[in-house]
C-alpha cells in the first residue's frame, strides 16, 4: 500500500520526495486529492472569514434584511436580517459539527459492537447480526422524524448529533464485523498468538491498524449521512431554528419564498455550501475506500 511505502523509507530521506510521492498518489487517486483540496479550501475560507465577520451578525435581525450582495454584505443578507457571509463562515462548521458528533458516536458504537460480534461469536454474534440487519433495513430518517417531532425545535446541536448517531452505527458495525472475521483467519493472527500476545493485544495491535483506512472511509461517509439527516430534519422544521446552520437556512429560504422573490443569493449560499460539503465528503470517503481496498484500485 502506498501509504506504507511512504513511511517505510528511513526519515533521513528528504521531505520533498515524500511530498512528490503524495502528489503522484493523488494522480492515481484523484478522488482523495480533490476531496482534500476542497477541505483545505474550506478551511482557508473559514480562517480568512473569521478575521472579517462578527458572529452576532449570523442571527436573525442583526442586519438589514433582503439585501443583495454588495461591498458591505458580500454574500447579501436573508429575509430575516442575517448576514449570509457570516452564516457561510460559521454555519458550515456548525453543520459539520453535527455531522462529526453523530458520526463519531455512531462509529464508536458500531466499531465496538462489530468487534464484539466478530470476537465473541456464538449467540452474541447471532443477536447482534439480527439487530444490525433490522437497523439496516429500517430507513433511520423516518424514526428520526418521529423522535425530532416529539422534541420539537428544542434540540441542541449536540442533541441532534446524538439522535442521528442512533441510526449510524449499523453500517460500520457490519463492515467492522466482516473485516475482523476475515482478518482473524489471516495467518499473522496465528503468528501473533505464537508471539505470546493475548487476545486484547491481538485486537488492538494486529487487527485494528489494518482496519484504519476502512474506518476512515466509514467515518467520512457517516459524517455525510449525518449532514444529510440534519439538513433533512431542518427542511421539515425539526432542526435547531435559532443557530445559523445551513439546514436552517434552507428551511427559511423555502418557507419564506426566496425563489419567488428572486433573491438568488439567499438560495445560492446554503445550496452551494451544502453541495460543496457533500461532494467534498463523498470524494474523501471514496478516495479512502480506494486506499483501503487495493482490489477496488486495480479495477479502475
Amino acid at each position: 500500500m502506498t501509504v506504507q511505502t511512504s513511511t517505510v523509507q528511513p526519515s533521513t530521506r528528504p521531505k520533498r520526495t515524500r511530498l512528490r510521492r503524495a502528489l503522484l498518489y493523488f494522480k492515481r487517486n484523484p478522488s482523495l486529492g480533490i476531496g482534500l483540496f476542497m477541505l483545505i479550501a474550506l478551511i482557508v475560507f473559514t480562517i480568512v472569514g473569521l478575521f472579517q465577520v462578527d458572529p452576532l451578525k449570523g442571527y436573525a435581525g442583526a442586519v438589514r434584511g433582503s439585501q443583495p450582495p454588495s461591498a458591505k454584505y458580500i454574500f447579501g443578507t436573508d429575509g430575516q436580517g442575517r448576514d449570509l457571509y457570516t452564516v457561510a463562515v460559521l454555519g458550515t462548521w456548525v453543520t459539520l459539527e453535527i455531522g462529526f458528533i453523530a458520526a463519531a458516536v455512531g462509529m464508536g458504537l458500531g466499531v465496538f459492537l462489530g468487534f464484539s460480534s466478530a470476537y465473541f461469536g456464538g449467540w452474541v454474534d447471532n443477536i447482534l447480526r439480527w439487530v444490525i440487519d433490522v437497523f439496516m433495513t429500517i430507513p433511520g430518517f423516518l424514526i428520526l422524524i418521529v423522535l425530532a417531532a416529539l422534541l420539537g425545535g428544542r434540540v441542541s446541536t449536540e442533541g441532534t448529533g446524538l439522535i442521528i448517531a442512533l441510526f449510524l452505527w449499523a453500517g460500520p458495525a457490519r463492515v467492522v464485523r466482516s473485516q475482523v472475521l476475515s482478518l482473524r483467519e489471516r495467518q499473522f493472527v496465528q503468528m501473533a498468538k505464537l508471539n505470546g500476545l493475548n487476545d486484547m493485544r491481538i485486537i488492538f495491535e494486529e487487527l485494528f491498524p489494518n482496519l484504519l483506512p476502512f474506518l476512515g472511509a466509514q467515518l467520512i461517509s457517516a459524517v455525510m449521512g449525518a449532514v444529510y439527516s440534519s439538513a433533512g430534519l431542518s427542511i421539515l422544521g425539526l432542526g435547531n431554528l435559532r443557530e445559523p446552520q445551513l439546514g436552517t437556512m434552507l428551511y427559511f429560504m423555502t418557507t419564506q419564498g426566496a425563489v419567488v422573490r428572486g433573491m438568488w443569493w439567499w438560495v445560492a449560499v446554503p445550496v452551494v455550501l451544502l453541495c460543496w460539503l457533500f461532494v467534498m465528503l463523498y470524494l474523501i470517503s471514496s478516495g479512502m475506500d480506494e486506499l483501503a481496498n487495493p482490489r477496488l484500485r486495480r479495477r479502475q
Binding site: 503468528m191 501473533a192 505464537l194 508471539n195 489494518n210
Partner: peptide, 29 residues
C-alpha cells in the same frame, strides 16, 4: 506452551502483518 511450540507456515507473506516492519516478528517474541 506457545513459547515452546513454534511454527513455520506455508505462505511466507500471510505470516506477516502488513502494517509492521519484519523486525516485529523477531523482536516481539
Amino acid at each position: 506452551f506457545h513459547k515452546e511450540v513454534q511454527a513455520v507456515f506455508q505462505d511466507p507473506f500471510a505470516a506477516y502483518n502488513p502494517f509492521y516492519i519484519v523486525d516485529r516478528i523477531l523482536e516481539l517474541p
